[in-house]
Design a protein around this nucleic acid. Sequence first.
DNA 1: AGCCATATGTGAGAAAAACTCACATACAGA
DNA 2: TCTGTATGTGAGTTTTTCTCACATATGGCT
Lengths: 305, 305
Amino acid sequence: MTRDPLPSLTALRAFEATARLGSASAAADSLHLTHGAISRQIKALESELGTPLFTRHGRRLVLSAEGQAFADRCTQAFDIISAARRTLERTREGAPLVLTCTGSLLARWLIPRLPRLNSELPELRLHWVSDERESAAAEQDIDAHLVFTEPNPANTHQRILATERIGPVIAPQLAAQLGLAAGSASHSVLNQPLLHTLSRPQAWPQWARLYGIDEKELQLGQGFEHLYYLLEAAEAGLGIAIAPQLLVEDAIESGRLIAPWGFAATDARLTLISREDLGATAQRQLNELGNWLEAMLALPLPSRR
Amino acid sequence: MTRDPLPSLTALRAFEATARLGSASAAADSLHLTHGAISRQIKALESELGTPLFTRHGRRLVLSAEGQAFADRCTQAFDIISAARRTLERTREGAPLVLTCTGSLLARWLIPRLPRLNSELPELRLHWVSDERESAAAEQDIDAHLVFTEPNPANTHQRILATERIGPVIAPQLAAQLGLAAGSASHSVLNQPLLHTLSRPQAWPQWARLYGIDEKELQLGQGFEHLYYLLEAAEAGLGIAIAPQLLVEDAIESGRLIAPWGFAATDARLTLISREDLGATAQRQLNELGNWLEAMLALPLPSRR
DNA sequence: AGCCATATGTGAGAAAAACTCACATACAGA
DNA sequence: TCTGTATGTGAGTTTTTCTCACATATGGCT
């Protein structure tokens, strides 16, 4: 039940940092100490353990074989402590749920609805972080990831919220200028330069297939890094963009964009993917958020805001 | 490459001991501190981590769920450090090779030969510990175990040194009294009370089988806990004992015992079983010892001493 | 209910540990 | 040989940790 007395843990920390970083000076910087402090701690540790851990070659500290093995174990132990601390901070009472999604989803759909979310679920403490990657759920410190993706049936830590629907959008001024009437089903889109994103080059071809249009006839125009810029460009009248309905519904509602050809469902789903080791509190919060999002997405369009 | 700053490790040690032992007072005893010191450290840690780890129920400290998870990780980390320290102490330069064998083997064969061993291999630092169990090789802090056992072909960390040979031995005075001539092959052993050990009850039946004697005819007399006492009893003339040749060769040489019926090989071998994670130095030392033992055991009997 | 044994919390000051500074030492490479 | 970089150390300071003594809380026992 009882354990052998541990060596001085302060000394151990200095030793481990030195071993890991390869020099006492680097360890001193890393621990915000002077090299003298490190040097003393290492000496003290060697004396306490009764064996040298480094061999001194002039101004160079080289780990002995046993010292290396010992240092590796210490690193392992400290990594465990460090990870435990992070977990504790993530799971502690009152800690916010940390969520990621792409900047465009955050800016164009979530942020406009946060006031309503806050008023309907005032207890829910959330922290949104934008992350353009498709899979950031397992990331350090991220509790869950909201993303359009094709669901993985094997993943039990995901919640499917809505079907992705994509469609071309255009500023009304540009539509008028081009002679496109809202609601027109014409294929005139083919004659226009199509704005697109570099992060999702398959969007236009995908849409074309859904509408039975030969994708080779598409004339791709300017590309943008992210959907967010693409939609700004569309609103500014730079051309025809393609986007998930969710991200343009506000713009359409307010008349900044129109979607003359409507939207078509894709195989992707708006999915909430959570890490597997969520604490009980976080899991509860996440469920509440999922419920709210699901309810919100089920509302008829005009009242979604 | 760099790591998050660790929490105060002194505080962590106090917390972990408290969590593990279930009380601050117990932790204080365990760490040779006062309960006040523990109490302060825990408070400091909770303040540093920004979350309570215990819920206070009057005079009782109860871990919160997150605190429990955190404590478990800390215990794991400290266990690693503790184990690493033990390993370091075992493998450090100049550390003796720690060996075990039974008390009888140690007293009746090894100790009489240690002077010769020390003079022939003066560099070899050994520490012999008696242990009556058959398998002590994986034991904490034990490098190797010297034992009569039936070898396990799958074990690569064993070295077979000699075949076990067992036979009945008797004090010459008693032999004379009973009318037994040395070298006699008679079955008169059957009429005598046979001294035996409780730790190895199969020795006499085994021998009887080797000589084609019906083991039911054996009349077991007084039993002793260990071979060591058995042999003392035999030398004192209490009856006929059975023992490995190795353990009585000195006594036979000096005339304290005789072996009228000789010795017969069994399936057991004198085997040096080592732990699997020996350091390079220890492995080298063990090889030297094994070589020496093997050479010694290969010598003709009179010069083995 | 009252009391006692047990366990934790805390203020003040003592003790110990850890740290810094400044200088010393040691080497590698220009 | 000189210079830049890295570790070692004596002396003194700062910070942390600990103890003591007392306070507080409570669970079980009579």
